[in-house]
Structure formats: C-alpha cells, structure tokens
Simulated scan of single mutants.
Amino acid sequence: MNKVHYLNSHVEKFREDIKITIDVENIGDLTHYCNLHIENKKVTKIFTECFHKKETYKDLIKKLPDTVERLGLFYLTTVYWIAYTCHYHNDKFDEAMGHCLDSIDMDVPLLNSPHFCKKVYYYLNPIDEVKC
C-alpha cells in the first residue's frame, strides 16, 4: 500500500457526511474559488442572474466571458449544475448526482477539486465522435 492511498483511506474515516444546501440569497458566493483565482464581479453577476432565471448550465457557459480560464469554466459549470439540481429539482438531486458519480468512478466528491470539476464538466458536456 503506498502512502497516498493510506492517507486517503485515513482521511475518509474522519470525513463527515454533510448534506449539501444552497443559500439562494448568497448564490454568488459559489463563484468564489479563492484557491484557484480571485473574484470576478462580472462572472458572479452572470452566474447569479442565470440561476435566478432558472437557466441551464449550458446557457451559463454561453454567457460567460472568453476571459474565464479553463479551470474556472470547469468549476463554475460543476457548481452551477449541482446548485441548480439541488435547489430546483431537489427530489431528483440524489439520483442525478448518483449517475454522475457512477459514470466518473468517484464515491466521495471533493467539490473544490479541479480534477473532480473537470470530470463533471466532461460528464455534462461529452465530446461527440467525429463521423466522416
């Protein structure tokens, strides 16, 4: 057993099961991922408006400025999809997250993990095969 696997196993024993809740009044707070970049007020405004208008994550992606870096795009799409599904389709949230996590082979999501966000982004936006 390598050290990384041992550490991850040890950490999971103490990880609490936290129910995800969405604070609609402060939905813009989800756009702040300070460990990845500083706040962009324009992105926060777009994110908040899309959420309150019940627009899909694909609409959000279209409205985001081109200056949003790739990692930010992965994060914003992931957080928006989770918040939207949790808040507007609460009865289907567990099922939707279950399908997502099964398809990317992950049991315990770390929502602030760039690796997790990238996997969810490609789960939501699968790459189509090019047919000649």
Rank of each mutant, 00 (worst) to 15 (best):
M1F: 10
K3G: 01
V4Q: 10
V4P: 02
H5Q: 13
Y6W: 02
N8D: 06
V11M: 09
V11Q: 00
K13R: 15
F14S: 13
E16V: 10
K19H: 09
T21L: 12
T21K: 12
I22V: 15
V24D: 06
V24G: 01
E25L: 03
E25T: 05
E25A: 01
N26M: 00
I27E: 05
G28Y: 12
H32I: 00
N35M: 12
N35C: 11
L36R: 07
L36D: 00
L36K: 08
L36A: 14
L36G: 01
I38W: 08
I38C: 06
E39M: 11
N40T: 03
K42S: 04
K42M: 04
T44K: 15
C50Y: 02
F51P: 02
K54N: 12
T56F: 12
Y57K: 08
K58H: 13
L60Y: 01
K62V: 04
K63P: 00
L64E: 11
L64K: 05
P65V: 02
D66S: 13
D66A: 10
E69A: 07
R70F: 02
Y75A: 07
T77Q: 00
T78L: 01
T78D: 01
V79L: 01
Y80P: 11
I82T: 11
I82R: 14
A83C: 13
C86T: 13
Y88R: 10
H89E: 14
H89W: 09
D94T: 04
G98E: 10
C100A: 14
S103A: 05
I104W: 04
M106T: 08
V108M: 02
V108S: 05
P109D: 06
P109Y: 07
P109I: 01
L110I: 07
L110N: 14
L111I: 14
L111V: 08
L111A: 00
N112S: 11
S113N: 10
P114Q: 04
P114D: 04
F116T: 06
F116N: 01
C117I: 00
C117D: 11
K119V: 03
V120D: 00
Y121Q: 05
Y122W: 15
N125M: 11
P126D: 04
D128S: 07
V130W: 13
V130Y: 14
C132L: 09
